[in-house]
Design a protein around this nucleic acid. Structure first.
Lengths: 341, 341
DNA sequence: TTGTAGGCGTTATCAT
DNA sequence: ATGATAACGCCTACAA
């Protein structure tokens, strides 16, 4: 193993002290322009590379941030992460991504692991499970900034970046009503999570505002998987008066529903219209493209990262948590529009 | 900020030395069972948490490994990463994921960053770009294990875990021939990457072995995007004698091709059969399910992680690089089978 | 079995 | 402007 070059090596060569070298390298003001240049040039010449571990040990900052998502193979989360990277890389941070697969033990485990890895902050989208608030308290005890994105929980002093799920849902439902749909079903999801609760409420409100009858039987709870979408669609279609539209809180269940509807020989959107949520790429690529709600994930990631940077750089004891809410956009496609063919 | 508990604190309380505490905590044999227990209990009691940075600084191991992929929002790469995690988490490692987006500057940049973060190893799938071997040499200089998975480059002493792309391609093409196809086009990709070269070669060999005429005009190079698939499919369909089958080296271009074929009013698989590569979930979920080649990504990830563990734990100077080749599996679906409906 | 002491590479606080 | 020195928290010869 090649000997690692340290600031001592370059100090020795230049007949200086490690302290001086350190200052020169860090652009400390208390140093002459001449030595600064000399040191920096020699550093490059000698192939010096800073030992980040040592710096982290000394400064207490690792320049790593943890990102925790339920899964990273969905375009939505992958894009959020991309946004975070774009904002944080230029500032010298690294991004460690962990997946929870919606399992509580993995979620708490990941937090502990990241804490153990001395991350300077954690950006996360909480999973369906009921992770104890205790873990989060640990973070605040340690003064490690925690920022929620998309799936948040209401914790005092914790910032979050979300979209206006209520409004996205409201728009989507309104759109279906404008298309002439009267009995609109809603594929919901674990409503202990705010996003799904709000999507449900937006849907409900749009129906009530339009003077249609709100029927609780048309709301079914499921999880965000294609097969689950199929299963609950089958249930709905078996009703005495089946729905003439389905608004799903997930693109994946919307896809499953579409499969089932087609299999039963019904036409989309003529017999039943379908709208999803998240604007996953496949909604655009399907032969029958799917109307969906775009959540501007990259922007969401960037904003969350910015909040982190603010918090980590602020000295003040009393933090003013931020609650940023982005506006979603309804993307109308074939699955719900009798006009677009 | 709550004062961090260190081994000194617990040593003080127990009227011992930090050295003893360290030994007790690390299950060093040279210690009495009694003090070991005592120390460990007090550690828990005092809420002691090891400072991994300090340990890393001292031991030279960070227990972080870097994973570099072109992108993480494809099911294939996400699953490989999952496999890596499954193998490495139990061993106490963390996984830092970086994306290159097939850009050379990001690729080299990521390697440098990870190196900077003192990772104990790097598992990567190289991008399309022509990353200089120089960067890789740097890794071997530093004795940081490098393991390629899926997309590799032939570098002496570097281990790799790949699938038998030639065979996967050969099987897929054979299957199309058995279905009665005579003019089989191939959507290729950057053949400076081994995987795409081998997929091309497997395709070619299957055609030759079956006594069909190999026509170079039926091979078009593209990149793995849906829209690109559409574009080149259009080209192919415009030929004087268009193909009666398309074997794509990517599921995404296969999807684009299918869209174009349908748009032109042709029937799949009756007029044209289509086969993709990677077994992305959407190939199963499409209304017209797509035949594809499964690459067992989770297994690939696990194997790559195992190779890393071996290399990082081996003391020997002379490393014997491993070249593991997994066997792919052809999954036959509607897009290529006149029997499955 | 336990303690002592030195070092991992850096930065920060003195003093010069 | 620069040097000397201590400290960050941990590990590990070596000595006792």
């Amino acid at each position: 193993m090649k000997k690692k070059i340290t600031i001592y090596d370059i100090a020795e060569k230049l007949e200086l002290t490690a302290a001086t070298v350190s200052r020169a390298l860090n652009n400390n003001p208390k140093i002459s322009e001449k030595t600064r240049k000399l040191v920096q040039e020699t550093a490059i010449e000698m192939n010096y590379e800073q030992n980040t571990l040592a710096r982290a040990l000394k400064s207490g900052k690792s320049f790593n941030v943890g990102v925790i998502v339920p899964r990273m193979d969905s375009n939505f989360f992958a894009s959020v992460i991309r946004g975070i990277e774009e904002e944080l890389y230029p500032k010298g941070y690294h991004v460690i991504v962990c997946q929870t697969h919606d399992q509580e033990n993995l979620e708490t485990g990941n937090i502990v692991s990241l804490l153990n890895a001395q991350v300077d902050g954690i950006l996360m989208s909480i999973s369906n499970s009921k992770t104890k608030n205790k873990v989060f308290n640990k973070l605040s005890e340690k003064r490690v900034p925690l920022i929620f994105f998309d799936r948040k929980r209401d914790i005092p002093d914790v910032s979050s970046v979300t979209i206006d799920d209520f409004n996205g849902s409201y728009q989507a439902t309104k759109h279906l009503i404008e298309q002439g749909c009267k009995r609109i079903a809603h594929l919901s999801n674990d409503r202990s999570l705010e996003i799904f609760k709000n999507r449900y409420l937006g849907y409900k409100q749009a129906i009530i505002d339009s003077g249609l009858e709100f029927d609780e039987n048309l709301v079914v709870e499921t999880i965000s998987k294609v097969d689950e979408g199929r299963r609950v669609a089958k249930q709905l279609l078996n009703m005495e008066t089946p729905p003439d539209a389905i608004f799903s809180s997930s693109d994946f269940t919307a896809l499953g529903a579409i499969q089932e509807i087609k299999e039963q020989g019904l036409a989309i959107p003529e017999d039943i219209s379908v709208v999803g949520f998240s604007n996953e790429p496949f909604t655009r690529f399907m032969e029958l493209s799917i109307t969906s709600v775009d959540q501007s994930p990259i922007e969401m990631g960037r904003r969350a990262a910015k909040v982190f940077l603010q918090e980590v750089n602020s000295k003040s004891k009393t933090k003013q948590p931020q609650r940023i809410i982005l506006q979603p956009e309804l993307i109308i496609r074939k699955s719900s529009s009798k006009r677009i063919k």
